[in-house]
Amino acid sequence: MNTLRRYAVPGGWTAALVVGLVIPFLVSDYDLLDLSRVLTLAMAVAGLNLLLGHSGQISVGHGAVFGLGGYAALVVVTKNGWPWVPAVLLAGVLCLVFGLLLGALALKMGGANLGLLTIAVAAVFPLVVIRLKSTTGGTFGLSLAHPGIEPPAWTGLTGAQFGFVVSLLALAATLLLLRNLVTGAGGRALAAVRTSPLLAAANGVNVNRVKLMAFAVSSAVAGVGGALYALVVAIAVPDSYQIALSITLLAASVVGGTRTWAGAIVGAAMVVYLPTAAENVVSGETSGNWAQLVYACCLILSLTVAPTGLVGGLTRLLGRIAPTTDSPSAPAPLPAEKEVR
């Protein structure tokens, strides 16, 4: 890695965090709600990036895991009066356990059963939520009279401002955690499993443990994001967690870039703002169908023109334009560190 790139990347993330902390004082609460949705959805997409880009697994059920975290948080807040912090932590732990159980079942069955199981989970989740009416509110879901992330009085912030700051810091902590997870020895193990499970096993890597760890962490991250999302928007209904959400999150991961953390934010922004853009062009009930069509077109275009995603393709382009300053004898980066932005 050349010297410029080594300092530019952390500098860029630091600048982005500083700008993010200033944004609540520059935009309206309405806009902050959408931005908070982007940040929380980016956590789920980042979890998918860990699976797709770093462990070679696929999940078409992260929308259900996202919803499980959201419902878990709202249930304990609305029915048990829990504060939002332990509610979010509970959602993360619950989704971690769920990921361990689902991943272990898929590994026991072998083959590509993880993807098939997650499809089944995504399809069944809304039905289960509706059946558990006494706990989840059935088709009407659960709601709060105001955003569930309330600011302390000493902050002087509105609910929307504080929710945005919490979501921003949670996303920053998540990306830092995932970045550290895919570097060093853990990153080499993930890269080996992604490249060739057989070769990884021959070199002493416990393939099943690495895959299970990646899926469990990915689920926990998505659960925390789902909990924060539900608390920010103050509602959770079954229709919000249909299988279409899982497919949309998967498309967001691929379009943004499965090997880039910045790509998770780009993909999440697409999820939030693309339907609004479609409504501005085509009004009425068909706007949702047009949004899905644009998702599909973006996915096809990304796979054709930028297989590494929008951010990954941009990184490659900048890498070709900017001359490297490394000496010829400098060691090459680890496989797990390439394109991780």
Rank of each mutant, 00 (worst) to 15 (best):
N206M: 13
G56A: 11
V97Y: 01
T315H: 10
P333W: 05
L89T: 07
A122M: 08
Q57C: 07
L293Y: 04
G69K: 00
S283L: 09
R259N: 14
A268N: 03
V224I: 11
G257P: 02
G256M: 07
L100M: 12
T324A: 13
A296Y: 05
P24N: 02
F162W: 13
V205G: 05
V65K: 01
L116T: 15
T14P: 08
T139F: 12
R6G: 05
A46G: 07
L33M: 13
L48T: 03
L178M: 12
V27W: 08
K79C: 06
T260D: 11
V237L: 08
P335R: 01
R259S: 11
G20I: 04
G204E: 08
L228D: 02
L231I: 01
V282M: 07
N280F: 13
P238E: 03
L303I: 05
G92H: 07
R320K: 14
T324S: 15
T286E: 14
G204H: 02
K79Q: 15
V254E: 03
A200C: 13
I149K: 07
R131V: 15
N80D: 14
M213V: 14
I58R: 02
L50M: 15
L168K: 02
A160F: 06
C297P: 01
G226C: 04
R131D: 13
G312C: 07
G159T: 15
A296S: 14
T276P: 04
T276I: 15
G63I: 04
S28N: 11
C298F: 15
A220L: 12
Y7H: 15
W82D: 07
L96C: 12
V255M: 10
A192E: 02
V19C: 12
L144W: 09
W154N: 11
L212G: 06
A122Y: 01
G159A: 15
G103A: 10
V27D: 04
S283Q: 13
L231Q: 00
V85L: 15
